[in-house]
Structure formats: C-alpha cells, structure tokens
C-alpha cells in the first residue's frame, strides 16, 4: 500500500517552473529549480498568505509574487527584498511535503512517509486529463466503460481495446472534491494520439452521464 499520490507528469513541469497541486485537499505549490530539483510546499507564503504557486523560480529559489520573499530548496527564506541587507530569521520557512519522481510521474506524500510510490515500469507517461466527477463516481464509471482496467496501486491498470488494438493502459488518479485528474500512461498497443482521443471520449461519456 502506498500513501504517495500522483500529482502531475514530470514532463509537464519543466525546470524553473511552478504549478499548483491538490494533495488530499491540501493546496500545494510544486516547483522545479533551474537545475531540476523538485519541491512540494504548502501553497502559502508565511508573510501574507499569498499562494506560492503564483510565484516565480529564479535559479535554485522560489519567490512569492506578492513581495518577492525568496525561499531555497530547504524551504528556508533566504531574501526579503524590502530589507535587502537583512538575513531573514531561520523561523521563516515554507512548509514542505515529500516529493519524488518515478516512471515519469510526480509523486507527493506527507513528510517522512515510510511507503514508496507505485512501480509503473513499462508505461510511458502520455498526458493528464481532469474529469468533472468525484473519485468514487469515476471508478464506478470506469468499471462499466473500461472493464479491462482493474484497480492497482495508485489507480487502475489493464488492457483496453483502442483503435482495434489491445492497449496497455495505466491511469493514476488524483482526486479533488468534485473532480478527478487522470494521469494517463500507456504501454504496448495503440499510438499516443489514439490513446489521447480514447481518453477524451471516455471523459465526455462519463461527464455527460453524470450531468444533472
């Protein structure tokens, strides 16, 4: 059993970028430094509560967009532009989560989590897709629409007929209140464009059915 949650695809977060991620209802800022180091922090600057996911990466630091408070990869505040000659007190830090990459997926867990992220060797990351239904409703719909997929660590895996080809699919689920993001990976079978179209039509089908 793993506590790690798929929170994006590695290729969608290039160096010197930051994005927002929802981890079990907690808002996080996930960012990659210029040299490629990944961090996941509570999405809140301790100064005035601004979302750090709106900030900007310079080199090995993330800065808040509101007042430019700058944090290194340890989470410690290293620079307060309003007081450029002051060394920020060590107590000013971003709140860190565990983050790692495996199989082209960004995985996030609480601090010091003892489990490991799922092994998804053999699959290539394709894309992420958000479906406007909650996790349980999505799992029920997938059981009906894609019976070849069975529950596996972190999501679903199995064989699906796509464009007449048996295709290996791995769906990693990132639930958020009334929506669920699918991180789609594929193995042997149909090509990426065909799998992408299959996923989009699946989304429409599920959303149409759940529409009031």
């Amino acid at each position: 059993m793993t506590n790690w949650k798929a929170s994006g695809l590695s290729k969608d977060l290039p160096p010197a970028n930051v994005m927002h991620a929802d981890w079990q209802g907690v808002d996080l800022a996930v960012w990659r430094s210029a040299s490629g180091r990944l961090s996941a922090w509570v999405d809140r600057c301790p100064h005035r509560g601004m979302r750090l996911s709106h900030g900007f990466v310079r080199g090995e630091t993330l800065a808040c967009i509101y007042h430019g408070w700058t944090y290194g990869v340890t989470g410690a505040c290293t620079h307060i532009p309003a007081h450029p000659d002051m060394t920020p007190p060590a107590t000013i830090t971003a709140t860190r989560f565990e983050v790692t990459e495996r199989g082209g997926v960004i995985w996030i867990a609480a601090k010091d989590d003892p489990t490991a992220p799922p092994d998804i060797a053999g699959f290539q990351p394709l894309r992420s897709l958000t479906v406007q239904v909650g996790e349980q409703a999505l799992l029920q719909a997938l059981a009906a629409d894609a019976p070849g997929l069975t529950e596996a660590e972190g999501g679903l895996r199995g064989t699906v007929q796509i464009a007449g080809l048996d295709t290996q699919i791995c769906l990693m689920l990132q639930p958020k209140a009334q929506e669920t993001t699918l991180h789609i990976l594929c193995g042997a079978g149909a090509g990426p464009a065909q799998v992408s179209r299959w996923a989009e039509s699946l989304r429409r089908q599920i959303e149409d059915r759940s529409a009031p």
């Binding site: 808002d27 005035r48 509560g49 601004m50 979302r51 967009i65």
Partner: peptide, 8 residues
C-alpha cells in the same frame, strides 16, 4: 490577482 489568492 493578489487579493483573490491569499489564504485565508
């Protein structure tokens, strides 16, 4: 753009 993204 700042004011709508402060928590709380």
């Amino acid at each position: 753009s700042i004011l709508e993204n402060q928590i709380p």
